[in-house]
Protein backbone atom coordinates (compact mmCIF):
# COMPACT_ATOMS: atom_id res chain seq x y z
CA UNK A 1 0.00 0.00 0.00
CA UNK A 2 1.37 3.39 -0.99
CA UNK A 3 -0.14 6.73 0.07
CA UNK A 4 1.00 9.90 -1.69
CA UNK A 5 0.00 13.49 -0.99
CA UNK A 6 0.18 15.93 -3.90
CA UNK A 7 0.58 19.72 -3.81
CA UNK A 8 -0.49 21.71 -6.89
CA UNK A 9 -0.36 25.48 -7.33
CA UNK A 10 1.16 26.29 -10.71
CA UNK A 11 -1.56 28.78 -11.71
CA UNK A 12 -4.59 30.30 -9.98
CA UNK A 13 -5.75 27.07 -8.35
CA UNK A 14 -4.27 25.69 -5.15
CA UNK A 15 -5.09 22.05 -4.49
CA UNK A 16 -3.88 19.27 -2.22
CA UNK A 17 -4.94 15.67 -2.83
CA UNK A 18 -4.21 12.30 -1.30
CA UNK A 19 -4.10 9.08 -3.33
CA UNK A 20 -3.94 5.55 -1.96
CA UNK A 21 -3.28 2.97 -4.68
CA UNK A 22 -5.58 4.48 -7.30
CA UNK A 23 -8.17 5.67 -4.79
CA UNK A 24 -8.73 9.41 -4.29
CA UNK A 25 -9.02 9.89 -0.51
CA UNK A 26 -9.35 13.67 -0.60
CA UNK A 27 -8.86 16.48 -3.08
CA UNK A 28 -9.76 19.96 -1.72
CA UNK A 29 -9.07 23.03 -3.85
CA UNK A 30 -9.35 26.84 -3.83
CA UNK A 31 -9.36 29.20 -6.81
CA UNK A 32 -8.02 32.76 -6.93
CA UNK A 33 -10.69 34.70 -8.80
CA UNK A 34 -10.00 38.16 -10.21
CA UNK A 35 -12.56 40.85 -11.19
CA UNK A 36 -13.94 40.84 -14.78
CA UNK A 37 -11.48 42.28 -17.27
CA UNK A 38 -8.44 41.24 -15.25
CA UNK A 39 -6.12 38.27 -15.34
CA UNK A 40 -4.24 36.84 -12.37
CA UNK A 41 -0.81 38.28 -11.64
CA UNK A 42 1.92 35.97 -10.27
CA UNK A 43 2.59 37.85 -7.03
CA UNK A 44 -1.11 38.26 -6.14
CA UNK A 45 -1.74 34.62 -6.95
CA UNK A 46 1.15 33.53 -4.73
CA UNK A 47 -0.23 35.70 -1.93
CA UNK A 48 -3.62 33.99 -2.29
CA UNK A 49 -2.00 30.55 -2.17
CA UNK A 50 0.06 31.46 0.91
CA UNK A 51 -3.06 32.58 2.73
CA UNK A 52 -5.04 29.37 2.21
CA UNK A 53 -2.53 26.54 1.73
CA UNK A 54 -2.42 25.40 5.37
CA UNK A 55 -6.22 25.37 5.60
CA UNK A 56 -6.37 23.26 2.43
CA UNK A 57 -3.68 20.91 3.80
CA UNK A 58 -5.66 20.43 7.02
CA UNK A 59 -8.80 19.71 5.00
CA UNK A 60 -6.99 17.17 2.83
CA UNK A 61 -5.73 15.22 5.85
CA UNK A 62 -9.04 15.44 7.71
CA UNK A 63 -11.18 14.35 4.75
CA UNK A 64 -8.84 11.43 4.10
CA UNK A 65 -8.88 10.54 7.81
CA UNK A 66 -5.11 10.24 7.81
CA UNK A 67 -2.26 11.39 10.01
CA UNK A 68 1.05 12.57 8.54
CA UNK A 69 2.59 9.26 9.64
CA UNK A 70 0.31 7.40 7.19
CA UNK A 71 1.79 9.24 4.19
CA UNK A 72 4.62 7.61 2.24
CA UNK A 73 5.66 10.41 -0.08
CA UNK A 74 5.12 14.16 -0.60
CA UNK A 75 4.72 15.13 -4.29
CA UNK A 76 4.64 18.73 -5.52
CA UNK A 77 4.48 20.50 -8.88
CA UNK A 78 7.97 21.23 -10.13
CA UNK A 79 6.67 23.02 -13.24
CA UNK A 80 5.65 24.28 -15.72
CA UNK A 81 3.75 27.24 -14.36
CA UNK A 82 4.02 30.69 -12.85
CA UNK A 83 7.16 31.18 -10.79
CA UNK A 84 5.83 32.80 -7.63
CA UNK A 85 2.92 30.39 -7.01
CA UNK A 86 5.17 27.39 -7.77
CA UNK A 87 7.77 28.59 -5.24
CA UNK A 88 5.13 29.06 -2.55
CA UNK A 89 3.69 25.59 -2.92
CA UNK A 90 7.08 23.88 -3.25
CA UNK A 91 8.24 25.59 -0.07
CA UNK A 92 5.30 24.20 1.92
CA UNK A 93 5.77 20.73 0.41
CA UNK A 94 9.47 20.79 1.27
CA UNK A 95 8.73 21.89 4.83
CA UNK A 96 6.13 19.25 5.60
CA UNK A 97 8.28 16.54 4.02
CA UNK A 98 11.07 17.42 6.43
CA UNK A 99 8.75 17.78 9.41
CA UNK A 100 7.17 14.40 8.71
CA UNK A 101 10.43 12.76 7.63
CA UNK A 102 9.03 11.67 4.24
CA UNK A 103 10.66 11.59 0.78
CA UNK A 104 9.93 14.40 -1.69
CA UNK A 105 9.03 14.10 -5.37
CA UNK A 106 8.92 16.89 -7.98
CA UNK A 107 6.26 16.23 -10.62
CA UNK A 108 5.72 17.62 -14.13
CA UNK A 109 2.30 19.27 -14.13
CA UNK A 110 1.35 17.99 -17.61
CA UNK A 111 2.26 14.42 -16.67
CA UNK A 112 -0.03 14.86 -13.65
CA UNK A 113 -2.96 15.66 -15.94
CA UNK A 114 -2.24 12.68 -18.18
CA UNK A 115 -1.83 10.15 -15.36
CA UNK A 116 -4.95 11.40 -13.57
CA UNK A 117 -6.95 11.11 -16.78
CA UNK A 118 -5.69 7.58 -17.32
CA UNK A 119 -6.52 6.60 -13.75
CA UNK A 120 -10.08 7.99 -13.77
CA UNK A 121 -11.07 6.84 -17.27
CA UNK A 122 -8.99 3.65 -17.42
CA UNK A 123 -7.95 4.60 -20.96
CA UNK A 124 -5.12 2.30 -21.92
CA UNK A 125 -2.93 4.02 -24.50
CA UNK A 126 -4.83 7.04 -25.79
CA UNK A 127 -3.91 10.05 -27.88
CA UNK A 128 -4.04 12.79 -25.25
CA UNK A 129 -5.41 16.25 -26.00
CA UNK A 130 -4.13 18.49 -23.20
CA UNK A 131 -5.91 21.83 -23.27
CA UNK A 132 -5.73 24.49 -20.58
CA UNK A 133 -4.94 28.13 -19.91
CA UNK A 134 -1.25 27.59 -20.54
CA UNK A 135 -1.02 24.45 -22.65
CA UNK A 136 -2.36 23.06 -25.89
CA UNK A 137 -0.73 19.78 -26.86
CA UNK A 138 -1.58 16.56 -28.66
CA UNK A 139 0.44 13.82 -27.01
CA UNK A 140 1.07 10.13 -27.64
CA UNK A 141 3.18 7.72 -25.64
CA UNK A 142 6.08 5.94 -27.28
CA UNK A 143 9.41 4.59 -26.10
CA UNK A 144 9.28 5.88 -22.54
CA UNK A 145 8.21 9.44 -23.32
CA UNK A 146 4.98 11.30 -23.74
CA UNK A 147 5.78 12.70 -27.17
CA UNK A 148 4.26 15.93 -28.38
CA UNK A 149 2.86 15.44 -31.89
CA UNK A 150 1.07 18.73 -32.15
CA UNK A 151 0.86 21.87 -30.09
CA UNK A 152 0.12 25.55 -30.27
CA UNK A 153 2.85 27.57 -31.91
CA UNK A 154 1.89 30.68 -29.94
CA UNK A 155 -0.71 31.02 -27.14
CA UNK A 156 -2.76 28.27 -25.49
CA UNK A 157 -6.43 27.79 -26.34
CA UNK A 158 -7.48 28.58 -22.76
CA UNK A 159 -5.42 31.76 -22.86
CA UNK A 160 -7.23 32.77 -26.06
CA UNK A 161 -10.62 32.17 -24.40
CA UNK A 162 -9.64 33.91 -21.14
CA UNK A 163 -8.32 36.97 -22.90
CA UNK A 164 -11.41 37.22 -25.08
CA UNK A 165 -13.49 37.05 -21.87
CA UNK A 166 -11.46 39.98 -20.53
CA UNK A 167 -12.10 42.01 -23.68
CA UNK A 168 -15.86 41.77 -23.40
CA UNK A 169 -15.76 41.78 -19.56
CA UNK A 170 -17.14 38.33 -18.86
CA UNK A 171 -16.97 37.26 -15.19
CA UNK A 172 -14.01 35.13 -14.03
CA UNK A 173 -16.23 33.32 -11.51
CA UNK A 174 -16.07 30.30 -11.47
CA UNK A 175 -13.89 30.61 -14.59
CA UNK A 176 -14.00 32.67 -17.78
CA UNK A 177 -14.14 29.52 -19.91
CA UNK A 178 -17.20 28.23 -18.08
CA UNK A 179 -19.02 31.52 -18.60
CA UNK A 180 -18.12 31.62 -22.30
CA UNK A 181 -19.51 28.09 -22.60
CA UNK A 182 -22.82 29.14 -21.01
CA UNK A 183 -23.13 32.24 -23.20
CA UNK A 184 -22.24 30.24 -26.33
CA UNK A 185 -25.31 28.06 -25.74
CA UNK A 186 -27.46 31.14 -26.38
CA UNK A 187 -25.54 32.17 -29.51
CA UNK A 188 -26.82 31.20 -32.93
CA UNK A 189 -25.25 33.47 -35.55
CA UNK A 190 -21.98 32.07 -36.85
CA UNK A 191 -19.35 34.76 -37.37
CA UNK A 192 -16.48 33.75 -39.60
CA UNK A 193 -13.09 33.84 -37.84
CA UNK A 194 -9.58 32.93 -38.99
CA UNK A 195 -8.84 29.21 -38.88
CA UNK A 196 -5.20 28.25 -38.32
CA UNK A 197 -4.18 24.60 -38.49
CA UNK A 198 -0.59 23.89 -39.53
CA UNK A 199 -0.12 20.16 -39.84
CA UNK A 200 -0.68 18.87 -36.33
CA UNK A 201 0.02 22.33 -34.86
CA UNK A 202 -2.40 25.17 -34.27
CA UNK A 203 -2.16 28.91 -33.78
CA UNK A 204 -4.55 31.07 -31.75
CA UNK A 205 -2.92 34.49 -31.55
CA UNK A 206 -4.28 35.60 -34.92
CA UNK A 207 -7.81 34.59 -33.98
CA UNK A 208 -7.53 36.51 -30.71
CA UNK A 209 -6.28 39.69 -32.40
CA UNK A 210 -9.02 39.42 -35.01
CA UNK A 211 -11.85 38.89 -32.53
CA UNK A 212 -10.54 41.57 -30.13
CA UNK A 213 -10.72 44.02 -32.96
CA UNK A 214 -13.95 42.77 -34.53
CA UNK A 215 -15.89 42.40 -31.29
CA UNK A 216 -15.85 46.12 -30.48
CA UNK A 217 -17.02 47.04 -33.97
CA UNK A 218 -19.62 44.29 -34.28
CA UNK A 219 -21.05 44.72 -30.79
CA UNK A 220 -21.34 48.50 -30.97
CA UNK A 221 -22.97 48.39 -34.41
CA UNK A 222 -25.38 45.66 -33.25
CA UNK A 223 -24.26 43.29 -36.01
CA UNK A 224 -24.21 40.43 -33.54
CA UNK A 225 -24.50 39.74 -29.82
CA UNK A 226 -21.74 38.82 -27.37
CA UNK A 227 -23.33 35.36 -27.21
CA UNK A 228 -22.82 34.92 -30.96
CA UNK A 229 -19.14 35.76 -30.62
CA UNK A 230 -18.72 33.23 -27.78
CA UNK A 231 -20.47 30.63 -29.93
CA UNK A 232 -18.38 31.37 -33.02
CA UNK A 233 -15.10 31.45 -31.10
CA UNK A 234 -15.83 28.08 -29.47
CA UNK A 235 -16.92 26.50 -32.77
CA UNK A 236 -13.76 27.70 -34.49
CA UNK A 237 -11.10 26.89 -31.92
CA UNK A 238 -12.64 23.56 -30.92
CA UNK A 239 -12.88 22.50 -34.59
CA UNK A 240 -9.16 23.16 -34.84
CA UNK A 241 -8.48 21.05 -31.75
CA UNK A 242 -10.62 18.15 -32.94
CA UNK A 243 -8.97 18.33 -36.34
CA UNK A 244 -5.39 18.07 -35.04
CA UNK A 245 -6.44 15.29 -32.65
CA UNK A 246 -7.90 13.37 -35.58
CA UNK A 247 -4.71 13.98 -37.55
CA UNK A 248 -2.64 12.54 -34.72
CA UNK A 249 -4.97 9.53 -34.47
CA UNK A 250 -4.65 8.83 -38.19
CA UNK A 251 -0.90 9.37 -37.98
CA UNK A 252 -0.41 7.02 -35.00
CA UNK A 253 -3.19 4.55 -35.84
CA UNK A 254 -4.77 5.10 -32.44
CA UNK A 255 -8.41 4.37 -31.55
CA UNK A 256 -8.61 6.17 -28.19
CA UNK A 257 -8.70 9.83 -27.22
CA UNK A 258 -8.33 11.26 -23.74
CA UNK A 259 -9.06 14.94 -23.09
CA UNK A 260 -7.37 16.52 -20.06
CA UNK A 261 -6.75 20.03 -18.75
CA UNK A 262 -9.11 22.82 -17.70
CA UNK A 263 -10.61 23.45 -21.17
CA UNK A 264 -11.25 19.69 -21.36
CA UNK A 265 -14.34 19.96 -19.17
CA UNK A 266 -16.08 22.11 -21.79
CA UNK A 267 -19.07 20.02 -22.85
CA UNK A 268 -19.16 21.42 -26.39
CA UNK A 269 -15.55 20.34 -26.94
CA UNK A 270 -16.35 16.89 -25.56
CA UNK A 271 -19.43 16.68 -27.79
CA UNK A 272 -17.49 17.60 -30.95
CA UNK A 273 -14.70 15.17 -30.09
CA UNK A 274 -17.34 12.49 -29.48
CA UNK A 275 -18.81 12.97 -32.98
CA UNK A 276 -15.36 12.70 -34.55
CA UNK A 277 -14.58 9.54 -32.55
CA UNK A 278 -17.88 7.95 -33.52
CA UNK A 279 -17.18 8.57 -37.20
CA UNK A 280 -13.84 6.79 -36.85
CA UNK A 281 -15.08 4.00 -34.60
CA UNK A 282 -12.85 5.31 -31.83
CA UNK A 283 -13.45 5.80 -28.11
CA UNK A 284 -13.48 9.09 -26.22
CA UNK A 285 -12.42 9.43 -22.59
CA UNK A 286 -12.96 12.61 -20.64
CA UNK A 287 -13.37 13.69 -17.03
CA UNK A 288 -15.41 16.40 -15.33
CA UNK A 289 -14.23 19.63 -13.69
CA UNK A 290 -13.19 17.78 -10.50
CA UNK A 291 -10.22 16.19 -12.22
CA UNK A 292 -9.88 18.16 -15.48
CA UNK A 293 -9.13 21.42 -13.73
CA UNK A 294 -5.83 21.61 -11.83
CA UNK A 295 -6.02 19.67 -8.57
CA UNK A 296 -3.78 18.09 -5.96
CA UNK A 297 -4.78 14.49 -6.61
CA UNK A 298 -3.31 14.57 -10.12
CA UNK A 299 0.10 15.47 -8.71
CA UNK A 300 -0.32 12.74 -6.09
CA UNK A 301 -1.22 10.21 -8.79
CA UNK A 302 1.77 11.00 -11.04
CA UNK A 303 3.87 11.04 -7.86
CA UNK A 304 2.48 7.64 -6.90
CA UNK A 305 3.54 6.17 -10.25
CA UNK A 306 6.99 7.74 -10.04
CA UNK A 307 7.53 6.76 -6.40
CA UNK A 308 6.55 3.15 -7.13
CA UNK A 309 9.05 3.03 -9.96
CA UNK A 310 11.78 4.04 -7.53
CA UNK A 311 12.09 7.80 -8.04
CA UNK A 312 12.55 10.40 -5.28
CA UNK A 313 13.76 14.02 -5.37
CA UNK A 314 16.57 14.91 -2.97
CA UNK A 315 16.10 18.10 -0.94
CA UNK A 316 18.82 19.97 -2.83
CA UNK A 317 17.14 19.06 -6.13
CA UNK A 318 13.69 20.17 -5.03
CA UNK A 319 13.62 23.36 -7.08
CA UNK A 320 10.93 24.54 -9.46
CA UNK A 321 11.01 25.62 -13.09
CA UNK A 322 8.61 27.74 -15.12
CA UNK A 323 9.35 25.83 -18.31
CA UNK A 324 9.25 22.09 -18.22
CA UNK A 325 8.12 20.29 -21.36
CA UNK A 326 6.04 17.14 -21.24
CA UNK A 327 8.56 15.25 -23.35
CA UNK A 328 11.47 16.03 -21.01
CA UNK A 329 10.26 13.45 -18.48
CA UNK A 330 11.44 9.88 -18.80
CA UNK A 331 8.41 7.71 -18.13
CA UNK A 332 9.83 5.00 -15.88
CA UNK A 333 6.46 3.49 -14.92
CA UNK A 334 5.18 2.39 -18.33
CA UNK A 335 6.46 -0.18 -20.80
Amino acid sequence: MTVVIGFEGSANKIGIGIIKDGEVLSNPRRTYITPPGQGFMPSDTARHHRAVILTVLKEALEQAGLKPADIDCVAYTKGPGMGAPLVTVALVARTVAQLWGKPLLGVNHCIGHIEMGRLITQANNPIVLYVSGGNTQVIAYSERRYRIFGETIDIAVGNCLDRFARVIKISNDPSPGYNIEQMAKKGSQYVELPYAVKGMDVSFSGILSYIEDASHKMLSSGQCAAEDLCFSLQETVFSMLVEITERAMAHCGSQEVLIVGGVGCNMRLQEMMGVMCKERGAKLFATDEQFCIDNGAMIAQAGWEMFRSGQVTELEDSWITQRYRTDEVEVTWRD
Partner: peptide
Protein backbone atom coordinates in the same frame (compact mmCIF):
# COMPACT_ATOMS: atom_id res chain seq x y z
CA UNK B 1 9.97 29.76 -34.51
CA UNK B 2 11.69 27.10 -32.40
CA UNK B 3 12.46 29.69 -29.73
CA UNK B 4 8.88 30.85 -29.88
CA UNK B 5 7.82 27.35 -29.05
CA UNK B 6 10.16 27.18 -26.09
CA UNK B 7 9.35 30.61 -24.79
CA UNK B 8 5.65 29.89 -24.91
CA UNK B 9 4.25 30.44 -21.45
CA UNK B 10 3.54 27.03 -19.99
CA UNK B 11 1.17 27.85 -17.19
CA UNK B 12 -1.84 25.87 -16.02
Amino acid sequence: VRLRGRKRSMVG
